[in-house]
Design a protein around this nucleic acid. Structure first.
Lengths: 341, 341
DNA sequence: CGCTCCCACTGAACCGGTGAAGTAACGCGA
DNA sequence: TCGCGTTACTTCACCGGTTCAGTGGGAGCG
């Protein structure tokens, strides 16, 4: 099957290639009657612009890139990424931009992928997630001059455009909520300490706990897996300073932590309150249902995509502050036990 | 920042563009000394082939497409897709092929995406998942002549190359295992009935149950969400013909079902045994841990990608039968209660 | 009536590779 | 010494769009 080109249309319309190009791109240079005729022919023979040809002359690839850097098992179990991708997609599809996806092993490899994409002119822009401190990807993208949006905090986004939500506010809401319930000993089971948002949440957590004058607080870092979530929980719960509430950085760890606590004969929420960061169907199907910090992740992705498309279009885009996560109290949080054994 | 082209290399090496092309592509036509010199220059100035230019002349886009068609929430919560993507990626990255991802609302829209990709020469091939009966995507890809691999059963793959695992064997293993434990009343909470693998599993389930002469068996269809999994469970468990074992089509429903059963004061596995199709970290963090049908999904994706690349390379590829899922017994299965109340 | 300006449209060049065909230099055997 | 084949290149054309610099004709205007 032969793909039609503008030359085919030009022949059938009895005009030059250029007239066809003008007509199809809604640019001046052809009469309205001719434009309509050309468009009709294009429609009839099912013409589509050859993206390679377009990219070659117009210097637009009409696609954007997203790299991920987590092991397969973790990527799979974190609903965050797929929901984010769905949101990005929706926005891109409207403008018939394509999304290139690449999974890498390290941030350095991700930067290398960006360099390759740029060199090969494969993408017009990139979206960064899982921002790190002194992130090599930020440096690489700045050097290349490739338009990019960082899904993460402005402080580490360099000159790239940040799309972010204020995790500190959500942390504050959560800790205040727990304190209001009467909790005085709280812990946070956090994700990878090299990620910016982990540290920002850590800092906010510590600051709010101290501000509220809580008796005791602690932060433990993990790799986001259920195994580490459970282990951290056992450690916390088994220690003499046992917390009465734990906030987890994702729902898998929260579920694992809840299971671990239940195995240690603790009742959730009577003996231990649990909060998960990032809501997902998972939070709602376990018993008790998890109190969770919820936000519209597909919308988050859509905002990032929209900002990127604007950047690519040459607009000057300030960072976009997305809405903060909101605490959704469910069955896993309650006042702490009145007396500690 | 200006991207170097082969013309730049040619100028510095004092040869023609074509000589550079020959040298860089390891084709005869240049002396070894010159080839080495040219490659050194390319390396030094960081040259990368412009993918658009290459695609325009060579007719290879060096990328493959994957479309998904499920709502964001379900995509997110199903580890299957991300793990599959990881596997596909690994294989593609080795040959520096890119992956284009698109989320669509319906199979018809997916077919439309394929048509667009083909028309725009954006991809050299496509991977199909969630195969349906009389799948419009299969027809579209056959018409277009776009190389494609179907992750699904050969019977519905048309002339496309199937990469599949024999779900019937896994169903048999599971039901025989449950029967050997003593279960005589079993149910299957299945996914979408329009998907081929759902129906094949349904048929195998029914056939094996009858073959083994079980007292009672049933299949219920859902949309894969935890909510429907829980609802199906409540219905099954609340009915007079209450099953002693339920097999779920994904782990989210299995977890939801287990929660629902526990809320109804049933003990898992004493009163009800539970098996999940497709293992994931989730199966292992809940209590009791879920007995699950496990398989190496990234490897599955890698095989699909490899088959597609071979197809694109012009090889004749027979279908690839992947290894079957294996039952991994854990704490959620046990002999049924001796006497029914 | 002649001049300018605008409109509708065309030809040529270009983007950065690849493929086919042509050519000069060289080695080698007859 | 000539003819032939091979090697190591070069030149030309092409992929399918876009951009730029024309160009011819008609309307508008003084």
């Amino acid at each position: 099957m032969k793909r039609p080109t503008i030359a085919d249309i030009a022949r059938r319309a009895g005009v030059s290639k250029v007239a066809v190009s003008y007509a199809l791109n809604d640019r001046p240079g052809v009469s309205e009657a001719r434009r309509a005729a050309i468009k009709a022919i294009a429609e009839e023979i099912g013409w589509r612009p050859n993206s390679a040809a377009r990219a070659l002359s117009g210097a637009r690839a009409h696609s954007v890139g997203l790299t991920l850097c987590r092991p397969a098992r973790i990527l799979g179990v974190e609903p965050f990424f797929m929901e984010l991708i769905s949101g990005i997609e929706g926005e891109l599809a409207d403008r018939s931009y394509a999304l290139m996806l690449q999974v890498a092993a390290t941030p350095e490899q991700e930067a290398e992928v960006h360099r390759r994409w740029w060199g090969e002119r494969r993408v017009d822009g990139a979206i960064l997630v899982d921002l790190r401190f002194d992130d090599p990807r930020v440096t690489a993208l700045e050097e290349l001059g490739l338009p990019a949006v960082v899904v993460g905090h402005p402080s580490q986004a360099g000159s790239l455009t940040p799309v972010w939500s204020d995790d500190a506010a959500a942390v504050r809401e959560t800790v205040e909520y727990l304190a209001a319930l009467g909790h005085r000993r709280v812990a946070r089971v956090a994700g990878l300490p090299e990620l910016v948002h982990t540290v920002l949440r850590d800092q906010a957590f510590t600051a709010v706990c101290e501000e509220l004058g809580l008796e005791w607080h602690a932060v433990m870092h993990t790799d986001y897996t259920g195994g580490e979530g459970a282990r951290a929980t056992r450690r916390l719960v088994g220690s003499p300073t046992r917390p009465t509430a734990i906030v987890y950085d994702n729902d898998i760890m929260a579920v694992a932590g809840m299971s671990a606590a239940q195995e240690m004969r603790l009742d959730v929420p009577r003996d231990l309150s649990i909060v998960a960061w990032d809501d997902s169907p998972l939070s709602q199907i376990v018993r008790p249902a998890l109190s969770a910090l919820t936000r519209d992740i597909p919308a988050y992705g859509a905002h990032a995509a929209r900002a990127l498309l604007a950047l690519i279009g040459g607009e000057l885009v300030e960072g976009v502050r997305d809405e903060d996560a909101r605490l959704m109290p469910r069955g896993s949080t309650a006042p702490p036990p009145p007396v500690r054994p």
